[in-house]
């Protein structure tokens, strides 16, 4: 049994046209995801032109992580050992569909390299790692539903074995017009107790 003396220091949710950091709404705007997330990027002062080249899943994960990491004063200028463990159920299905459409017709066969590079869900972890210069452990898991137990066990294992000082965990899902990001940071600092029931409580808010 793993010991648990770690806490959830911050959590961020992006769902239903709102971005919520630690129970406080930091951005909201009506409209489809593409306009909502672009507006969030500009309003929140994110400066990273490559953002506009990302697919929807990466944009979702990137903004959620950016809001949370900035709040935690984690910056690219100061190297920190922050591991990333993400999960979802749709993998990169939305971008997979776009790619499939581009190769469906043999007479009009023009797959886009810029689309193809996002046909893996863990690319969103790469985008965050590049921006924040994170060189630590990372994994992306596919589950039918949100799996707090797995995230809890894996993040504790990384912290206990000193593979990471902090772990950015959560769920980033994008499928059709359905999107939902729930990210939280686990560390040996003050915060909400890091237990499976606490993770589920935050997720189910």
């Amino acid at each position: 049994m793993l010991q648990n003396h770690y806490n959830i220091t911050s959590f961020c949710r992006i769902k239903n046209n709102r971005i919520i950091l630690n129970d406080q709404v930091v951005f909201s705007e009506t409209g489809h995801f593409s306009t909502f997330i672009k507006s969030a990027y500009k309003t929140l002062g994110v400066k990273y032109p490559k953002f506009f080249k990302m697919d929807a899943l990466s944009k979702l994960a990137f903004i959620a992580a950016d809001v949370l990491l900035k709040h935690e004063n984690i910056t690219p200028e100061h190297e920190e050992n922050v591991a990333i463990i993400f999960s979802n159920s749709a993998s990169s299905l939305e971008t997979d569909r776009t790619h499939q459409t581009s190769i469906q017709n043999k007479a009009n066969y023009f797959p886009s390299p810029a689309v193809f590079v996002y046909t893996l869900p863990n690319i969103c972890i790469g985008e965050i790692s590049i921006k924040y210069k994170l060189y630590s452990e990372n994994s992306f898991f596919i589950f039918d539903t949100f799996n707090a137990e797995h995230l809890f066990t894996y993040s504790n294992s990384l912290l206990e074995s000193q593979k990471a000082d902090k772990v950015l965990c959560g769920w980033v899902e994008y499928d059709g017009e359905h999107y939902d990001a729930f990210l939280y940071l686990v560390a040996k600092s003050e915060g909400i107790t890091h237990q499976i029931k606490d993770i589920n409580t935050l997720y189910n808010k």
């Binding site: 023009f110 886009s112 390299p113």
Partner: peptide
């Protein structure tokens, strides 16, 4: 313009298409 390697591949596709 600061284009990258993926952009270069995209330009190759654009020339073809």
């Amino acid at each position: 313009l600061g284009l990258d390697s993926i952009d270069a591949l995209e330009l190759i596709v654009m020339l073809d298409k």
